[in-house]
């Protein structure tokens, strides 16, 4: 694998002319619909973020019109239970790598929703980075989805911020 990596390292040099769009690229983004939510409801944004820069980039937060609070969360084992918590210092995307935000894993948590987010609705989300320019993505579609052992609508969920 090391050989192959070295081989491909030459390609960015060849492509520097068209690499002006560098920074972080977001793909396959979606947000979990939250039709039962009221003021204070929660949901999350998922997808793939690729760091096309030469240095590490940190996802530290975001903004969207439909949420009062946006935080970068991880699912982690605490006292023998999977729990969701804010990632201290944000989520690092190493240079040239991708991270996947997915149910049951890291995600961009939207809290204090200002309205229902219905299936098929589209929202715009800004991702805030340290080490790269923030990006704003329009047309992130709300999908009806379960899974990831997450239960955003449960009052029993503990948040260890």
């Amino acid at each position: 694998m090391r050989k192959i990596s070295l081989l491909f390292l030459t390609i960015p040099l060849l492509l520097t002319g068209c690499a002006s769009t560098g920074g972080v690229v977001a793909e396959d983004l979606w947000v979990k619909s939250s039709e039962m939510s009221m003021q204070g409801g929660m949901t999350a944004v998922y997808g793939t973020l690729t760091n096309n820069t030469q240095q590490d980039v940190v996802l530290v937060g975001g903004e969207t019109e439909i949420a009062g609070v946006v935080e970068v969360h991880e699912m982690t084992m605490i006292g023998g239970e999977m729990k969701m918590q804010e990632i201290d210092g944000g989520l690092t995307i190493p240079a040239g790598m991708s991270i996947v935000l997915e149910p049951g894993g890291n995600h961009l948590m939207l809290m204090m929703l200002t309205d229902d987010l219905e299936a098929g609705e589209e929202i715009s989300v800004t991702f805030d980075f340290d080490g790269a320019e923030d990006i704003t993505v329009d047309g992130i579609v709300a999908k009806p989805a379960e899974g990831g052992d997450e239960d955003y609508h449960s009052g029993e969920m503990e948040m260890d911020n």
Partner: peptide, 8 residues
Amino acid sequence: MVSRRGFL
């Protein structure tokens, strides 16, 4: 989950 997209 981290993967070296493209390289992989």
